[in-house]
Amino acid sequence: MTTWAVDLANVGAVYPWVGLELIMVLVGVALWILWHIVQIRQENAELDEDTRLYGNKEAIRKALDDHPV
């Protein structure tokens, strides 16, 4: 939009990049899928590390004593 000196009855979409909706949606979908991929990788790595570092019986028993309920 370059001016508001218009009859609003004749105005439709006013957001930037009207006409490029498909590209914007494709970018949004790609970002959504990417988010899941990154999140699952992060979660896997954290769980693996926790298991490796603290997954022994002694550490688990200590954790249960520290935070029983």
Partner: peptide
């Protein structure tokens, strides 16, 4: 293998890392 957390982590608690770092 993406549904359930490992057995050890479930026993320690799913906040174990955060609680450990906070302590």
């Amino acid at each position: 293998g993406l549904l359930r957390v490992p057995r050890q982590v479930e026993l320690m608690g799913l906040d174990f890392r955060t609680l450990h770092e906070e302590e």
